[in-house]
Design a protein around this nucleic acid. Structure first.
Lengths: 238, 238
DNA sequence: ATCGTTGAATTGTGATCACAATGCCTGTAG
DNA sequence: CTACAGGCATTGTGATCACAATTCAACGAT
């Protein structure tokens, strides 16, 4: 019956008081971010409804929201899929992160009180532990939490949704690319960022974030490596 | 029957081949951007369905998409509204524009061939005409078209949706603020931008865009003026 | 063997309905 | 006159259904 490659999405228990649509949205978002839905794989509402065991309605709403965040792509011919990556697009996404995130960090710095700094340090420590254990899933997740917590310290911040959109577009490809590496060196400029924060040095903080982002994608730094990863991540969706 | 202030949304003919949901989305988006739905006004799906004369279903989808773009805000208590503006948020939105748009312009410059430049010049000329006639609606619209055309010249660009989201959040407030001014001086740094483009001077282009944005919001530059406009735009939604 | 065509199955779209939760209004007690 | 409680109307949510458009595969012609 299924001609297409099967899709398996990790399901979590749905808490009461969470609407079905919200649960579907979170589930699909996580699946996309973790690269569990292959780029280019055609998705249908009814198929997802069966996999998640809900009616088509919440799926429709979640898909529309995810496509508004550029996590999914609605092609003209009523086909929905995770967008495929290209070398140029990858480059643009990384540069956009570098344009936005250091700025967001600097804007958040005035709001970083002792409590927030303690939280950041705690996340940082957890990250170090995960790195010692070589738990890449955890490292990546904690790294995102660190950045999110930092930027969101600014209560008037408006860039977080934009940044999340960029992460969502880079996520699937990063997962697919790193999963093919037996081992990759994880850079951690968070200590550098923490020092800049404690000195109230906005410029140093921006530099630390910028370095963190740049070095986090260094494993695909050469055009050939990038090309290979893209080739691989796209053909695997065949 | 209607205790709330009436909402009137300009309707356009729906072309065939455009889905109802798309038409509703465009209609609501335009209404929000033009400040025709007052910030803070509670919206209900069924009310909008009656106003637009469609079933509640397309409204639901359009609302979800617009709230994903931060054009609408879904409060916990199942209430949807255009977000209210605050002085801090306005500041953040403007600074985010300044962080993103000059970058997007510089990234687009390599792709600006003679044809694109001609298009930009044409838009610029139309803008000058509108300015001579004092047609502020047209000026504002053409100004957006100019920026959009410039950034979108980059075929791999990923920032346009993010920028559109920022415009969408600033739009309603800018309309309400300028509508209360009898006359406001419209700055136009587009000529400066065109010269930078023709010289292939990325730095100059970034500066021109930056100035264009900063001076476009200069009429609320003083904290007191900003405060007054916000006061006014929010109380009018009472 | 390859390409174009046709028909059946599948798909997105939009309408309608049922239900539980929320908000609103009224009536009553203090 | 104020505050609270009760009941009623309204709302978002999610399921189901009908239909037109599209896809896909089998079939036939060249």
């Amino acid at each position: 019956m299924d001609k297409k490659s099967p899709i398996s999405i990790p399901l979590t228990e749905r808490e009461e008081s969470v609407t079905v649509t919200q649960w579907v949205y979170q589930t699909l978002r996580r699946a996309v971010m973790h690269g569990q839905i292959l780029p280019g794989r055609a998705l249908t509402i009814r198929e997802l409804a069966k996999v998640l065991d809900v009616s088509p309605m919440p799926i429709r709403e979640a898909i529309r929201q995810l496509s508004a965040e550029n996590a999914l792509e609605i092609q003209g011919n009523r086909r929905v899929m995770v967008p495929k990556m290209t070398a140029m697009k990858f480059n643009e996404l990384c540069e956009a992160r570098i344009a936005l995130e250091p700025y967001a960090a600097a804007r958040a710095m005035p709001y970083l009180n002792a409590a927030k700094i303690a939280e950041l340090k705690a996340l940082n420590t957890l990250g170090d532990q995960a790195m010692a254990q070589g738990n890449f899933e955890e490292i990546s997740s904690l790294n995102q939490d660190f950045h999110r917590l930092l930027y969101s310290a600014n209560p008037h911040q408006v860039t977080q949704p934009l940044i999340e959109s960029l992460w969502l577009q880079l996520g699937p490809f990063m997962r697919l690319a790193t999963s093919s590496l037996e081992e990759y060196y994880v850079v951690d400029r968070h200590d550098e960022a923490m020092q800049a924060i404690e000195k109230h040095d906005a410029i140093a903080l921006q530099l630390a974030i910028k370095s963190d982002i740049r070095e986090g994608i260094a494993f695909v730094s050469t055009p050939e490596a990038l090309h290979n990863f893209i080739e691989q991540s796209n053909t695997s969706a065949r």
